[in-house]
Design a protein around this nucleic acid. Sequence first.
DNA 1: CGATCTAGTCTAGAAAGAAGACTATGAGAG
DNA 2: CTCTCATAGTCTTCTTTCTAGACTAGATCG
Lengths: 123, 123
Amino acid sequence: MPKETDEPKQQPGAGCPIRGVLDRIGDQWSLLTLEALEGEKKRFNELMREIGDISKQMLSKTLKHLEQDGFVRRTVYPQVPPRVEYELTELGRSFLIPMKTLIGWAEQNHAAITIARQRHEDA
Amino acid sequence: MPKETDEPKQQPGAGCPIRGVLDRIGDQWSLLTLEALEGEKKRFNELMREIGDISKQMLSKTLKHLEQDGFVRRTVYPQVPPRVEYELTELGRSFLIPMKTLIGWAEQNHAAITIARQRHEDA
DNA sequence: CGATCTAGTCTAGAAAGAAGACTATGAGAG
DNA sequence: CTCTCATAGTCTTCTTTCTAGACTAGATCG
């Protein structure tokens, strides 16, 4: 079959801003990290402890991405037990607003989800 | 060091409904799939084509999870080129509301993110 | 009769993630 | 003085997950 219209193949989420954003923040760790940073600036190990089950590697990578995308600001203090602080930027804080509605929905509906899950198990 | 308070070790996201929900919908494919199902019921291959870069296996698994959690209803028509339709449940539709605010945010802010990314590359 | 369509599953190879060792340097304990 | 601890990561190894593509059954079309 010859290429009919030389279809541009259209890279799946090319023009779609949702894709561009989801590719980065559409994962568990990014969302949890942003949530952990709400309110106060935190240090690396503080975030580790707070999130609990994230590995150093993933936290490091997640923070780098969030910094690249302008959600988080990283500040290094040239002390010798090194001190690095992470805090939300304006963009990061603005993101928390839609995220809050998502969290609110989760709080209201997690019971329904749990029930659906159990019904499925039983069946 | 003896166990001081016999700390319950507290499974990281145990009591937190956000964790329970994020574990399932906190990934790219779930969000994209739910979005694709907005409005009309769709068949498996239709979803494949629409999402574009998801593999059969992941779409299959994602749909199963969404069905288990009560977001999606799966209907099989006993025809012989098999026909299976997926549609949002009430819960699924209600989820689109907070998700819309997230998408709206993405649309408004993806430019800022792109700029931040480029600035980072240059540096 | 042979190709085609559907909704998946199965498999093998590639990629991502987890857990833990390791780094430099200064401070505090003994 | 030496021993240990703390910080913010990186590096390495092993396990898990994901992708791409082959494969299935049975009706229909040419």
